[in-house]
Every structure is written in structure tokens, then in C-alpha cells.
Nucleic acid binder design. Structure first.
Lengths: 215, 215, 215, 215
DNA sequence: GATGAATGAGAATTCATTCAT
DNA sequence: TATGAATGAATTCTCATTCAT
């Protein structure tokens, strides 16, 4: 008896995933506005009506796709980083991971930017449940390094966002430039190393005459 | 006679602007997919049919809006920066300017991200005519500073993109976090100063024990 | 063996009633066109599929509901009136009963008026099996009172329909006027008395000067 | 200039009527629930989209049809009756007129019974603007006849509703019985005469022994 | 050129009915 | 027999585009 209802639940859950996967694919390809329910149904291999047995409207599909596939999933790994390695190795690995992830998921991210920005509830939920916890984690790490004297005294919140922003912005630029980017030929590991160095040491040559220039 | 045709041209040009402004407003508010021609007509104060006397289709309006309002204008200022001040002041001013611009135009940017990414021609045109010239200029500046020994030896292309990306990514995060951001209370000039310092000197405390940690 | 099959039949019959009751409730509330099979299933506490084990289509449910719940039941009582009391008491009791019945079942009647009118077979069946037997009975009663000289010489068929129509029409008006009706505050027994007097004696004051006016 | 906009308004008004007429026809034939917008468009000889340029939803079409074609129009004549003729002639003419009108418009009435009953706003509006003014007029007439001693002392409100109800109920029964009604062969003028006599004098034979029976 | 009513293809959504379990 | 997920035709409604005035 339990097995019967368990089985049914499994099938139901599988359908849900099937539909979300299909929706993500279609949204990525055509954007939310241009995607149609028949598109999603075809991609999922189910009938149009079936979709409505699982989600009450197209917008609800979007919400579910974002919640379960786009807005949190890619961030999960980021939250689990072991803090035990040294900064440089950590940062290189992190940046490399981010770049890889972003370039692999660029299409899956871009379709939702406008939608999330426009839907206040969606934005707030995402910010509170995903973005801010992630940033807070980075902030804490930066803060503890500052306390230990390893990092210069800085505003940890701003710095964490500058670091995260650098990775995101760099990846976005790479995405936009596409094949025409001069970074295209450089291996990701090398890019990550350069970015990590930039973040750790900045651009100024230490011991050069520049510091004077700076003040 | 000439004045007659000149006048006509002026009116025509004015109408074009009127329609583009209205379209930008509506696209920003609702997104391209959800915006309708009647929306734009209402916003512009003209009849639906009039719009089709100036643009052959909704998509063409999008193209024109992006080309004339979104993709270049905000970057024009970037190209005009005087390079004669010292690095720190320059960077602070630049970053502050970018942050202000982005926060003022966030809504105007976000609606088109997905659209541009999906339209290859549009993306390529934008990249070649606007993005790359701007980045190349930054790259040259970084390159000359490296040559002069003011900056550490680095890949100028990567570094220029890391700098630009940091500003863009930071602003995007601020936009996403909105009111909930811990940076919300900090004056833009102060934020710009922190970001500029981060870019110039990195996070590591010079002379600390960290450098060993780093290697 | 017999008890097994009897039990089964009982259950089957019970289900049928369950479904018809639910259908009547839902049809009354939303009308036939807007009522859905899931609505009825929910109301009946059975699954959608179960309904199709008992009735082959939504239209068949309507037919059964009308036949067993709406078109005959409320008229059955009418046939059972004892004819042995005097006219005035009889008419008062009858009218009061009709008014009470109609006001209690108004919602159950109204949803089907259009449906029945449109379905010729349904209408004819109802007329032949229910309406006409009832009216014929009233007609006979009026006829016998005319023969005995108690009623004026009149067309018994027309008069019977005028009497029945008065009760029905009065109740319909009361239903339509709802709370706003000036009859709202009058007790049903008083209303019934007035209507019965009207039917028996008409409106004209006997012995008044009006009769001249009338000819 | 004025003629231009006047012309346009005329066309607009004509379209509105065209659509309402078509909707009335289709609603009458199929009922509101089963009627479709393409049905109405076809009947009106316009495109589906055109309908939506004039009415925002199917329900709004219903409301307009009821307001302009069904709920008031047939009642207008009733309000204009000249009160100067004698009661019998007046009542005969009135009843005949009602019977004719109802039998000609039966199909147009029946489809809306359930809809009006279910839509509180619609019902209330109809009652206040059409039904009650009409009934009040009848009530006043009955009241003045009572005062003059021509009618017996009665509750004028109840009596007016009994009279109106009789005409309505009689017509409804005739509609329901259709071809099978024994009244089918009787000319409308004769029916009206019988009903008027019934209303004026009741069923009881004056001077018969019945009055004793009645008390 | 400007206008806005008309158009109809196409979108989201509903729901009667089927059928495997 | 009971169930309820799956189906897809049918429905309401939208809107880019056309075109007569």
C-alpha cells in the first residue's frame, strides 16, 4: 500500500523534474516571453494539458525553474568551500570554478535577469535565501583574514562584493565578447590565476615609485 | 523649398526620438516580450499606425532602441575620460561615475540582456562598435602603466576586463540586493574609494606574513 | 450469493444518488455550462473516473438530474392534494405550499430552464410525464366545480393554467425581486390567503358601480 | 471635421448593435455557456478580434445584451399604457400584449434566467431599474381603483404582483407545454379575454351557493 | 503622414473524457 | 470498481500588423 503511493509520488516527482528541465531548456533558448507552453510540452514529451496538472500557469513554471534550477543550485557549491587551504589557492580554485560554471550556464542565467528584476517578490526571496547568505559567508571569510592581519584593514562587506562582482563581471564580459574576446585563447586556469593575483595584490607594483603617485 | 523639406525632416526625426524614448520606457517597465505596440503608442502620444510609418516591426524598434539608447550612450562617457590625472584619482572618479550611471540606468539595461544575448547580429554589432573599443582603450591605459613600471607585469587584456568587470559586477550585485544590501548606507564616493583601493592594491596586507602563505 | 449482489446493487444505487445530489448542487450553484466534472466529483466525494462508471457523459448527468430531482419531485406533492376540503381552504393551502416549495427550490429550478427549453426531447418527456398530468388534474377539479355551479362558466383548461400560472409567476417575481420586494415582510400564510381570494373572487368589488364600467 | 468624427461614431455605434444582435441570436440559440465568441463573430460577420475591440470579455457582452435587448426593451411598452380606458378593456389589451410579446421572445428570455439569477449585481440593477418601476406603476393603478371603490379592499402590492405573475406564469406554461397545450388552438384575443375576466371576477359564481362553501 | 478599427494567427488555459493501475 | 494522471481539442483572449479614410 505504501509502495503504491510511494511509486505514484516518485512518478509525480519525476514528471515535475521533467517539466522543469524542459522549461529551463526552452526558456534558455527563447527567453521567457517568447517561450510557449506547447514548446515546453514538446521538449518534455508530454501533452500541453499535463503541464497544467503540475503548474497552474506559465509564470509559476518560471518561478519554479528559477527557484530550483537557476537561483540556488549553482550557488550551492559556493557555500561549501573548505576554508582550510591558503588564500591564493582558494581564490584561484574559486574563481576558476565560477568562471567555468558561469560560462557553462550563461544561457541559463541570462533569460531570467529581467524577469527577476521585475518581479519584486521573486527578487526579494532570491536575495534573502540565496544571494545574501552566500555573500555573508564570503564577508565572514574576508573579515577573519583582516582580523588576523593577513588582509589590509578594509570594509569586509564592500570587499566581498567587489571580489564576487569581479568574478561575475569578468564572466559577463567574456560572455558578451564571445569569440571576439582576447581572453578566448587563454586557458581558464591561467585566467583564474591572473584574476586571483589581481584580487590579492591589486595592480600596483610594490616598491615602485607609484605608491607616491597614489597619495 | 529647402526650409519646407528641412522642417519635414526635423519633424520626422523628432517623431523617431519620441517613439524610441517611449519604447525604452515601456521595454524597461515590462520587458520586450510583454510590451505591446499600443503601450508604446500611448506612451509616445501617437497612434499605433504612426509607429509603423517609422519602424517596420516591433523587433526593429527594439534594435533601434538598443542601438541608440542602451548599448552605446552609457559607454560614450567612458571613452572621454581624461587620462591625465593620477591613477588613484582617475580610478575613483571612474568607478564612482560607473556606479552612478549603472544605478540610474539599471532598469534600462536589464530588460535587454537576454534579448541581446540571443540575437547574434545584435550582439556582434554591439561588441564590435561599442564594447571592444571601450575595453581596448582601458587595455591600452593599463598596458602603458605596466610598461612604465607603475603596474605589476600582468596581462593587460585580462586586467582591463577584471577592472571593468569588478565595477559592473559590483553594481549588478548592488542592484540585485537593492534595499537589503549592507552597502546601501555608504555614500557612493566612499564605495568608489574602497573599490579603487581594492583594484590598485588588492586585499593582501603588504609586509605581513601572508606573502609566505601565498606562495 | 443473493446478498452479495444485493449489497452491490445497493452500493451502486447509493453512488448514483450521491452523484446526482452533487450534480444538482453544483449545477444550481454554477449553471450547467460552468459546472465541471471535477466540481461534481469533489462535491460527491468520489474520483472523476468513478462518475464515468455511472454516467457516460456530462449531458447524461444533466438528464438524470432533471428527471429524478428537478422536473418531477416538486410536482409530486401537487398530485397528492386531498380534494375534500372546501375551495378557499384548499386553494390557500395549495398556494402556500407552492410558494414555500418554489422559494426553497428556486435555485434548483432556474439553472435548468434554458437547458430544458433547448432540448426538445427533454422538454417533451417532462411535459408528457409530469406537467400535463398535473395540469389535467387541476383542470378536472375546476371543471367539476363549474358543473356544480360553484364556479362561473369558463374554459377549465385556461382557468387551471391561469391559476397555476399565477402561483408560479408570483413566486418567480418574488424570487427576482428578492430582498427588495415589498412582499418580503408579509408572512407566507397571509400572502397565500390574499392570492387565494384574488383567484376566487377577482379584484372587482361586487355590487359596486364598477360592473357598469366593465361592460 | 465634425462630420468625420460623427460618421466614425455612427459606424462604431452600428458595430456595437451588430455585435449585440448577433450575440442575442447566438445566446438564444445555444445558451450563454455553450455560445462561443467565434459563433458570435460569424453571426455578426466580423472577425473575432473585432468583438474584443468593443467588449472586453464574453461576460460583458452578456451584460450589454441583457441591458439593452432583454431586460428593459420589452418592458418599455408596459410603462406607457394609457390609463384612460375602462379596466376590462385595459386588462384584456394588456394581457394580450404580454402574451404576444412573451411568445415572440420566449427564446430570448429563457437563456438569461439562470445567468441573471446567479449574477447579483445584474439582478439588482435589473430589479431596480426595470422590474420595480414597472410593478410600482401597476401597484399605483390598482391602488387608485381600490380607493375609488371599484376594486375590493386588498393589498395593492400583492395584487399587482398576482396579476403580473398570472400573465407571466400563464405564458411560461404555454411555452413549456408548446404544441401539446390545449390552449394552442385558442386565439390570443380569446385567451386574453378569459384571463382578464378571471383576474377581474375570480372563479366563483356570484350569487351561487358557493359563497357559503367559501366561509 | 496620421489615424485607429479590423484582422486573424497564435497564446494561455480549461476540461470532458480515457485508461492503465 | 475506484482512481486520478494524461490527453488534446476547444475556448477565451491578445496583439502585431494592415489599410481605408
Amino acid at each position: 500500500m505504501s509502495s503504491r503511493s510511494q511509486k505514484k509520488e516518485l512518478v509525480t516527482e519525476y514528471r515535475r523534474q521533467q517539466i522543469l528541465d524542459a522549461a529551463l531548456t526552452v526558456f534558455s533558448r527563447k527567453g521567457y516571453g517568447e517561450a510557449t507552453i506547447p514548446d515546453i510540452a514538446r521538449e518534455a514529451g508530454v501533452a500541453v494539458g499535463t503541464i497544467y496538472n503540475y503548474y497552474p500557469s506559465k509564470r509559476d513554471i518560471l518561478i519554479s525553474v528559477l527557484a530550483s534550477r537557476v537561483l540556488s543550485e549553482p550557488f550551492l557549491k559556493l557555500m561549501e568551500q573548505s576554508p582550510e587551504v591558503d588564500d591564493k589557492a582558494f581564490l584561484r580554485a574559486l574563481v576558476q570554478d565560477r568562471l567555468t560554471m558561469l560560462s557553462q550556464n550563461a544561457d541559463k542565467f541570462l533569460f531570467m535577469v529581467g524577469e527577476v528584476y521585475r518581479d519584486q517578490d521573486l527578487r526579494r526571496q532570491w536575495v534573502q535565501e540565496v544571494v545574501q547568505p552566500t555573500l555573508r559567508r564570503a564577508e565572514q571569510r574576508v573579515g577573519s583574514r583582516i582580523e588576523s592581519g593577513a588582509f589590509r584593514p578594509m570594509n569586509a562587506g564592500v570587499t566581498a562584493r567587489a571580489l564576487a562582482g569581479m568574478a561575475i563581471g569578468f564572466a559577463v564580459l567574456a560572455m558578451i565578447e564571445g569569440e571576439e574576446s582576447p581572453c578566448k585563447g587563454i586557458p581558464t586556469s591561467e585566467l583564474a590565476a591572473q584574476l586571483a593575483d589581481f584580487a590579492l595584490m591589486g595592480v600596483v607594483a610594490v616598491g615602485s615609485g607609484s605608491p607616491q603617485n597614489l597619495e
